[in-house]
Write a protein that binds this DNA or RNA. Structure first.
Lengths: 125, 125, 125, 125
DNA sequence: GTGGTCTAGACCACC
DNA sequence: GTGGTCTAGACCACA
C-alpha cells in the first residue's frame, strides 16, 4: 500500500486511519494477517514505535488483534468492519456536503452535480 | 472570514484557495472591494508579503483586479466566477468520489449514501 | 504516594493500577489535578514516557482527562469512580477467596476467619 | 500441581510456599511421600538445586523430614500442619484487609462485600 | 511550565 | 522471526 503523511497531524493517527481504510475496503481481508510492525514501518518510512502506536490504537478499538508470536490479524467480525466502513463513508459525505455548502451549493444542487460528474466519467471512459 | 492553514503546503496557495471560495460563494460579491492586504494578512495571521503573493495569483487569473488608488476589486465578470465555482465544485466532487471508491463504494452506492445523509440531516433538523 | 514496582509485569500497567487505587480511595479527589507527568515519573523513578503511557491508558478509560496546558484532572464522574472502586474490590475479594479455597478453606470458613481476624485486630488495638 | 513463578522474588522461596500450600490443603497428606527432588524440579521447570533448597527450608521448619533411603515424607504432626494452615490463612486475610483498606473499604464494608461476592457466586453456580 | 509526539536503540519472551 | 516494553533525548504547541 502507499502512504501519504502530512506534518500537520500526528503521524500515528494518519497511519491508523489509512490502515482502517485498507481494512474496510477489504484490501486487508477479515482474518488475514497484517505485515509485521517493522515491515509496515519500513513501508511508511516511520519509526517502528510510531507504527506500533498506530496498531495499538487499532487493537484497542478491536479492529485488529495480536497473536503473540505470529503477528497481528484483522478481526473476523465482519459486522464491526461494515459498521466502520459506513461510519467513515458518512464522515466523508458529511465533509463533502459541508465544503459544497461553503462553495454555495445547496444539498440538491450538490446531488445534481455528483450525478453529472458520474455521467461525464462514464461518457469519457 | 475564518482562515485554516496547515503547514504541509505553501501558505500562499492555501490563502488563494480560501479567497477563491469566498468569491465564488458570493461572500465577496462581483465588483466589490477586497479588504487591504494588511487587513487580510492580519486576519489570517500571516506575513503581509505572503498575502500579497496570494492576491497576485488571483490577479493573474483575472479573478480580481487592482484599482491603482482604491485597492483590489472582485471581477465583475460573473461568467468567470460561475465557471470557477463549477470547476472547484467538480474538483471537490471528483476527490470525494475517489475517496469513496477507495473505501469500497461504487458510484451508485456513493450516490445512495449521499441521499441518505441528506435525508437524515433533514430529519434531524 | 509510594510506588511498588515488580519486574514481572509491564511497569506502565502497574503504574496505572496504582494510580487507579489512589483515585478510587479518594486520595486524588474527583476534579482535582494530578501531578505532572514528569513529576509522577520522577516519584516512581521511571522514564516519563512510561508514566505517559500509564496516564494515556487511564485517559482512554475515561478516569482522567487532560487539559491541554494545565495538566491532567481526575474525572468528576463520581459514579464512574464508584463503579471502578467496586470492581477493583470485587476482584480483590475474588482472588482472596480463591487463595483461601486453595488453602482448603470453604466459603463459610473463610468468612469466619475474616471475622475472627477483625475481632482480634480490634482487641489488640 | 501447577507452579507459578515470578522473577521478582527468590525462586526457592516461591517453591517452598507453594509446597506448603499443597501440604496444608491436604493434597500432600500427612505421612505421605513427596515426589523426588528431580521430579519436582522437572515439574516446576527449575534447577534441581533450587528445588533442593526449597525442600531443605521445609525440612528445617519440621514440615517434612527425610527418610534416609526412601525420600522425603510429610510430617504426621497434624497439629503442626493445622497451625501452619491457620497462620497462612491469617496472613492472606491480613493482606486482603489491608488492600481493601487501601481501596477505601472499612472492615465492616469489606465483610459485607465478601458476603455479597459469595452469594453472587452461589447464585451463578 | 504543561502535555503530546517522534525517533533511535535496546532488551525481553515466545516459538 | 514476532510483538511488547522501556529508556533517553529531542522537538512542538499552547498560554
Amino acid at each position: 500500500m502507499t502512504w501519504k503523511l502530512t506534518g500537520d497531524r500526528p503521524i500515528y493517527l494518519q497511519l491508523m486511519e489509512q490502515i482502517q481504510v485498507e481494512i474496510v475496503a477489504g484490501r486487508y481481508p477479515p482474518g488475514s494477517r497484517l505485515p509485521s510492525v517493522r515491515e509496515l514501518a519500513a513501508q511508511a518510512a516511520v519509526n517502528p514505535n510510531t507504527m506500533q502506536k498506530a496498531l495499538a490504537e487499532l487493537e484497542s478499538s478491536g479492529l485488529v488483534y495480536s497473536q503473540r508470536t505470529s503477528g497481528r490479524m484483522i478481526t473476523e467480525d465482519r459486522a464491526m468492519i461494515e459498521e466502520l466502513k459506513l461510519r467513515l463513508a458518512r464522515e466523508q459525505a458529511g465533509e463533502f456536503l459541508e465544503k459544497m455548502e461553503n462553495l454555495g451549493f445547496g444539498r440538491e444542487e450538490t446531488l445534481g452535480l455528483i450525478r453529472q460528474v458520474i455521467e461525464k466519467e462514464e461518457a469519457n471512459g
